[in-house]
Amino acid sequence: MSTDPVTRLRVLAAGLGAGLYAEERLALPYEQVWAVAADLAGELPHLVPLLREFRVPPGDSDRKEAVAVGPLRTRDAFEVRLAPGWCLMQSGLIVGGMAAVREGDGTRFAVLGATRPSALRPVQRLYAPLLGRRRGRAFLRTVEQRARLRPGA
C-alpha cells in the first residue's frame, strides 16, 4: 500500500509543523483542478499573494529548478517535484506543496505552506491557528475559481 498524495501532504505538514495547511473536496473533476495546480508558471502567481512570477524551465521532468520573483524583484530559487496529483517546492526559506486525488466525481485538494529556518518555527506555530487556515482556505477557493475558468469547465 502506498499513501495517496493528499495523505502524504498531510503527513509532511505534520512533520514540518506547517503554518499553512488546508484540504477540501472541490466539486470539479480532478483533471480540471490539477491542470491549474500543475501549471506552476501560469497559475502560481494568481494563487500566492505577493508572488510576481514563477519561472519554471519547460519540459516534462519531475524534478526542476524554478525561480520565484517577489514584488521587489527579489528572487528565491526553488527545487520542484511535480507528478500527477503531487507538487512539492522548496527554497532555502520556504516549502510549498499541493496534492490532489479523485473523490467521487470531485477532487480532494490540499495545500501546504511552511517556513524552513528553525528560528521561525515558533512563529509558524502561532501563525497556523490564526492565519494559516484562513490563507489555506483562500488558496483553495482561488484554485477552484481558476479551474472553473479553464476551457472545458
Binding site: L12, L16, Q90, V95, A114
Partner: peptide, 8 residues
C-alpha cells in the same frame, strides 16, 4: 533540519 524533500 526541516528539509521537506528529504522528508518526502
Amino acid at each position: 533540519q526541516g528539509d521537506a524533500l528529504a522528508m518526502d
